[in-house]
Simulated scan of single mutants.
Amino acid sequence: MLRPSRARATLLLVPVVVLTACTAEQAAPADSGPPPTVELLAAKAGCTPKIQIDAEELRQGYCTTSIGTFFITTFATQQGKDQWMDQAPEYSPHLVGELWTALASRAVLDRLRQQIGGDLHLMDHRKSPSPGAS
């Protein structure tokens, strides 16, 4: 049996340990897993992509579905994605996600976005990352 002074010390430690465990769990970012592949994104859109580029730093494939033709590019690193985006045509709309982009006409991207997510970039992404932003 614990003495009263030890019992109080033990009871005081328990909430601190529980509070610390909860705080650490809440502060930890959710594990989102690995970035999606060209094949995974294409599958969400209902197709199997035809791979055009299969390199260590990026992969690119295209699909044609009932919504139209689109290109999906995935990147190994954020730096690689940023470099690609800096070279992307300013006049072409892009659908942009974490370590991936999709390229197509605006009409196709509007429908594709409902299937795979992402942010729609309508103009030069270096100036305005989303519609309506200035």
Rank of each mutant, 00 (worst) to 15 (best):
L122Y: 05
A7L: 13
S92R: 14
C22M: 07
T37F: 02
K127G: 00
P35R: 15
P93H: 13
A42P: 12
T64N: 04
K44C: 08
A45W: 06
P49W: 01
G61Y: 05
L41A: 00
L99N: 13
R6K: 07
G80T: 00
K44Y: 10
M123K: 14
D119A: 14
T20V: 11
Q79C: 03
I72V: 15
A102L: 09
Y62H: 11
L13E: 02
G33I: 13
A88K: 06
S32T: 13
R59V: 00
P29R: 01
S66F: 04
L12R: 02
W84K: 14
C22A: 13
A27Q: 15
L112C: 09
R8C: 02
T37V: 04
E25P: 03
R126Y: 00
L12N: 04
G97F: 07
E39V: 04
Q115A: 12
C47W: 09
A27I: 14
P29Y: 06
L11Q: 04
D119R: 12
A55H: 08
R126P: 00
K44G: 07
P89K: 00
A76G: 01
S66M: 01
E90N: 11
T48G: 06
L109I: 00
V108F: 07
T74H: 06
L120E: 02
C63W: 06
D82Y: 03
L41K: 05
S32W: 10
E39G: 01
C63G: 10
L41N: 08
E39P: 01
G46K: 14
T74M: 07
Q26V: 02
A24Y: 01
T10C: 03
M85W: 12
A45G: 10
S105A: 07
P4R: 00
Q87L: 10
V96K: 12
T20K: 02
L13G: 11
E39L: 03
K127C: 09
E57M: 03
A30S: 07
T74I: 07
G33C: 14
L58K: 12
E90V: 12
H121C: 06
V96L: 12
H94P: 01
C22H: 05
K127Y: 15
L13A: 09
